[in-house]
Simulated assay, not measured.
Amino acid sequence: MITYINNKAHEFNDLEQAFSEDPDTKEMFWLNISNPTANDFKFLKNKFNFHHLTIEDCMHKAKRSKINDYNDYHFLIISTTDNNVSNAFSYNNIYIYISLNYIITIHYGENKSIKKIINDINNGLSIVSNGSDFVLYNILDDAIDQLFIVTDKVEEKINFLEEESMNNPVQSTLNNIMKIKKTVIKLRRVVSPLREVLNTLLRHDDIITEKYRVYFTDIYDHALRIYDLIESDHEMVTSCLELYSSQLSNSMNKVMKVLTIITTIMMPLTIITGIYGMNFQDMPELHYKYGYFITIFIMFFISFCEIIYFNKKKWL
């Protein structure tokens, strides 16, 4: 699907149709391409003379955020998230060609950031007419907002896992901790290069006009904050894993303590039964009328005394 946006959004099935109906590329426009085909890339390369390496990045779905400078345009890869960490954190990229006269975005599947901006334009907001850098700002701003949502959800899940590690250190808790740890690591891999891209953008006067520089500075500050939150989440996950291991060890120690106490209580009883289980002929107690009851009483009395002693020592 091709979305050609100037004063308002227009939908087209292919690029040739979009430019045949509005062939003037000197006026500022935004071209959004969802799920591009090989013919779309061929058209872009011929019409705008885009470098073949950038085309390859788009076709091969390069994942790391970056920015490349060329003579007449700049090429960016921006990572956006689906703000869903219920099962597995995932993200998709927006591939952006930008110059003073146009901005071209390419993505695969539905992208929430792009969809939101198009809806805003359809609702009457003036975005494209304010320049390509303002469109780029809106894309980046929404991408950063989505990252804030993800980090909040991650932090909530980590807090829940901390309670689970404290109260119920079972195998499923460990599995969930490892899943959220992978999510945090993946988030850091997304945000770290995005932070570098924003830092580079702030030094490009040919992309960002002075009017909107403060907007990009604000986004960069948000990216730094997100990165700090992710680092904090990583430390929290590590602490959660240590807490799980500690609680598991404590649980095991409690079990061993109970077993040790039981063994200690049974030890003198075993000695008594072992002595009277020997097959000697001359054992006077064997023929005593109440010998069995006296022995049982002594065994219970010894066990009771041991329990009182353990309780006094606070071993129970």
Results as ranks from 00 to 15, higher is better:
N168R: 05
N168E: 02
P169S: 05
P169L: 09
P169N: 01
V170C: 14
V170Y: 14
S172W: 10
T173G: 05
T173N: 10
L174C: 04
L174S: 06
L174P: 07
I177L: 10
I177Q: 07
M178A: 06
K179I: 04
K179W: 01
I180A: 07
I180T: 12
K181G: 01
K182R: 03
K182V: 00
T183Q: 02
T183M: 13
V184R: 02
V184W: 03
V184S: 02
I185P: 02
K186D: 10
L187I: 07
V191K: 03
V191Q: 03
L194I: 06
R195W: 04
R195L: 13
E196C: 04
L198F: 06
L198K: 00
N199A: 09
N199Q: 08
T200W: 00
T200G: 00
L201M: 02
L201A: 01
L201G: 01
L202I: 11
L202A: 15
R203Y: 04
D205T: 12
D205L: 01
D205N: 09
D206E: 07
I207T: 14
I207Y: 09
I207W: 11
I208F: 09
I208T: 01
T209E: 00
T209L: 05
E210S: 13
K211Q: 11
Y212T: 06
Y212H: 15
R213C: 02
R213F: 08
V214D: 02
V214C: 03
Y215R: 02
Y215D: 07
F216A: 11
F216C: 13
F216T: 14
T217R: 12
D218N: 07
D218C: 00
Y220K: 02
Y220M: 05
D221T: 07
L224Y: 01
L224W: 04
R225L: 10
I226W: 04
I226N: 12
Y227P: 02
D228F: 08
L229S: 12
L229C: 04
E231S: 13
S232K: 00
S232C: 05
H234G: 03
E235F: 07
M236W: 12
M236V: 03
T238I: 05
T238H: 04
T238M: 06
S239T: 13
C240A: 12
C240I: 11
L241Y: 04
E242R: 03
L243I: 12
S246T: 15
S246N: 14
S246P: 09
S246V: 07
Q247V: 00
Q247G: 01
S249G: 15
S249C: 10
S249M: 08
S249R: 10
N250D: 04
N250P: 02
N250I: 14
S251L: 10
S251M: 13
S251A: 13
N253C: 08
N253E: 09
K254T: 05
V255P: 01
M256A: 13
K257V: 08
K257I: 09
K257Y: 12
K257E: 06
V258T: 11
T260P: 06
T260M: 12
I261F: 12
I261K: 02
I262R: 08
T263A: 15
T263N: 14
T263D: 11
T264W: 10
T264R: 04
I265Q: 13
M266D: 00
P268F: 11
L269R: 14
T270E: 07
I271F: 15
